[in-house]
Design a protein around this nucleic acid. Structure first.
Lengths: 235, 235
DNA sequence: CCTAATTTTTGGACTAGATCAGAAGGCGAC
DNA sequence: GTCGCCTTCTGATCTAGTCCAAAAATTAGG
């Protein structure tokens, strides 16, 4: 079927491929585009949503639509730090600590950390950007008893090196899940997404050299910003 | 904000959690639901799309909306056959061969298979179901010269065992990418999706015991049907 | 019973608007 | 300069429908 929707998607796609818009550039507003294509905002928006699903464009809530840069290649099995990984791909990384607190584990977290009763955890929320675009919300939950005095350290750096230098812990084993789902409210807010938009959730659990479960990490990626690449030899 | 959209999503979510609808059961039609919730079809559909994004429900094109069963846990690194993996999770698998042909590699495929000039490949398209629900479209592209007389074999079974028994090939090394993107037309049709709907694409490349690139595989999963689970020890 | 034509149901595409809330920018008071 | 207000711009939510195409159910004919 040659529908309007298809046609519009096709044209915008070509314009992006042809370089009319460059990476991270803002598209005209929905109102302007719908006028340009002689259609209603609803159909135009459906077209944009289609391209968003494909990973060609992304939106920032109430800010507009933008062209997606190439996906970052990410291997969750590698112990490489975020900043190093990004730099290796000729991109620029930055991290901002959003919140740090010590609190009782929620039932979700308790389950992942295999805690029997309600137990205290350190909860660190950070926001990571690539080339000045916010793409990842990370939440780390560490078992308090294993990390005394954690809050006194600089948490804007890599947690892996902090574990090693201050506590002598190495991550020798980990497992993780990759789940396509919707952004929960606090994540959506941090990533400038509308609530309920698609994200890629990675839930990882780390064990130290004594086989002890140390912490877990919830990563919420903007889905157009990343591709997971795993090699069976590289670990 | 307490919007209608949120409220409707919340109610349907509760109804699903509360067991009003069971797995794979059809929800009432969009028209019925919009009347029930005293709203327009557009808003109601937005609510359903939200739940779809979360992975709670799924749709079959022009058939209706259904409640998603629990996600299948899938480890692309494990050499386990699809049918065995599904059986291990107390679910029932089935596979249907859609199409087999021998043709010149498209530029996409040629790139993945590292073919220098246009070269012939065997292309096998299969459709896989779990508990009678179609969840996965798989396309295998094998380098023709490595698999003489392939078309004479039974291709409804596992390709891995076919490689081993008839050609003496073992997959000793592989790498793969996981990409959230939209379903291309032929995939959407096979999975009963509307074109452009969200899928999880896994693109894998296999090498045999001589380090020779043998084949690649494109998997297109219904995103609510699967979660990828990888353990750093298990390979 | 089976097959084929027909009707009904379904979601998909579409129109033409209004209202709302948050983000961003400009402007004035200090 | 900077802080707060206020306007403008943006997408998000919402109304009230129509028409279309494919799927499913029903019906009629053999």
């Amino acid at each position: 079927m040659r529908t309007q929707l298809r046609t519009i998607k096709g044209i915008i796609k070509e314009q992006i491929a042809g370089g009319l818009y460059t990476c991270q550039q803002k598209l005209p507003s929905e109102r302007e585009l719908s006028e340009l294509f002689q259609t209603t905002r609803i159909i135009l928006k459906d077209a944009l949503i289609g391209l968003e699903t494909e990973g060609l464009i992304y939106r920032e809530e109430r800010r507009g639509w933008f062209v997606s840069p190439p996906r970052l290649k990410y291997n969750p099995l590698s112990r490489s730090h975020f900043h190093r990984m990004v730099a290796e791909q000729q991109r620029q990384a930055s991290t901002r600590v959003l919140d740090i607190k010590t609190e009782l584990a929620s039932s979700d977290v308790a389950k992942v950390l295999e805690l029997k009763s309600l137990q205290s955890i350190h909860r660190i929320q950070r926001l990571r950007s690539v080339d000045n675009r916010v793409v990842l919300f990370v939440e780390n939950c560490l078992i308090t008893t294993l990390f005394p005095g954690l809050l006194q350290h600089d948490l804007s750096q890599s947690l892996t090196s902090l574990y090693k230098e201050h506590y002598g812990y190495h991550t020798v084993h980990s497992h993780f899940d990759v789940i396509p789902t919707a952004a929960p409210e606090h994540v959506a807010k941090a990533l400038n997404l509308a609530e309920g938009q698609q994200i890629l959730k990675i839930c990882r659990v780390n064990y130290n050299q004594n086989g002890l479960l140390m912490d877990c990490e919830f990563e919420y990626w903007r889905p157009d910003a990343v591709m997971i690449r795993i090699d069976s030899n590289e670990h």
